[in-house]
């Protein structure tokens, strides 16, 4: 198997997903053995920023014209583009307030000088360029990333995860935070793959991996309200990671 040319990039984000890749430790050596990493600014100072790439791995959301241009350049030189992390896949935390006027926001924070900043509402990569594979998570799961790369090297698109966090939580026999009515756990709405890490620590799922297919937002909202949570709190919880905000937005459009 020949080693494909690979670039790993970060747009606007915390770089946590690139860190997951570097943190694969002994398995990072396997990655280097299998991939010819040509452009990875976070890990190397010797990069080829112009070569054609078989595979581009992109983290972060698009929050500026500069991000947008960089993403388009990456797309143009890459055969396969993979979005990693919730920001790249859904817009992420930065997209939480996506409906608010951007120029108003920069003025509020930076005053007059804010107007000169290059800033656009947060967008996911797929809103700008074609994305071949989305690997969600905040940050991504090492296992899912490695399996995704292995699948691509084998010529296959990885099987998209479809199991909600709840099912993975039950498989590990963690106590259910929903039936115990103690938390606004977003497990039933959220795509698994994290092995219910947060519920396993008695912390309600925050929905960081984005929504599962056919997420039943109305029923979960009704349940939270029945359990004594206010509409405001619920809305805040749901929009933390943009994935569920996107779903909520679609739902409200359906109603209108």
């Amino acid at each position: 198997m020949s080693r494909p040319n690979v670039g790993i990039f970060g747009l606007t984000g915390c770089a946590g997903d690139q860190l997951v890749i570097l943190n694969c430790e002994d398995r990072f050596l396997h990655i280097i053995a299998a991939l010819n990493i040509r452009d990875f600014a976070m890990a190397s100072s010797d990069n080829d920023s112009a070569c054609d790439l078989d595979l581009a791995i992109v983290e972060g959301a698009v929050l500026s014209r500069r991000d947008e241009e960089q993403l388009e350049r990456i797309r143009a030189r890459s055969r396969i583009l993979v979005a990693i992390g919730t920001c790249a896949v859904w817009g992420g935390i930065a997209a939480m307030d996506g409906d608010t006027d951007r120029s108003q926001l920069v003025r509020d924070i930076y005053g007059e000088c804010g107007e000169q900043f290059d800033t656009t509402p947060a967008r996911a990569l797929h809103e700008i360029v074609g994305v071949d594979l989305n690997i969600s998570g905040c940050p991504i799961e090492e296992e899912e990333f490695l399996s995704g790369i292995s699948n691509l090297l084998n010529g296959d698109l990885p099987i998209a995860p479809t199991t909600p966090v709840c099912a993975e939580c039950k498989m590990r026999e963690y106590n259910c935070l929903l039936t115990e009515r103690v938390d606004m756990c977003l497990g039933p709405l959220t795509l698994g793959g994290c092995n219910a890490r947060c519920p396993g620590l008695s912390i309600g799922c925050v929905g960081c991996r984005g929504p599962v297919d056919d997420a039943n937002l109305e029923s979960v909202t009704a349940l939270f309200m029945e359990n004594g949570f206010g509409r405001e709190d619920i809305a805040r919880k749901l929009r933390t990671f943009a994935g569920l905000r996107v779903v909520a937005h679609t739902l409200s459009e359906d109603e209108s």
Partner: peptide, 30 residues
């Protein structure tokens, strides 16, 4: 309308036996 499709009922059911099958490939080989 009520069901969350969370699968909790199937996971805890003593007689549910549906399973999925998947091939997990090792990095850089078949």
């Amino acid at each position: 309308e009520k069901c969350l499709s969370c699968g909790n009922c199937s996971m805890v059911c003593p007689t549910c036996y549906c399973y999925d099958v998947a091939d997990e490939v090792k990095l850089g080989s078949h």
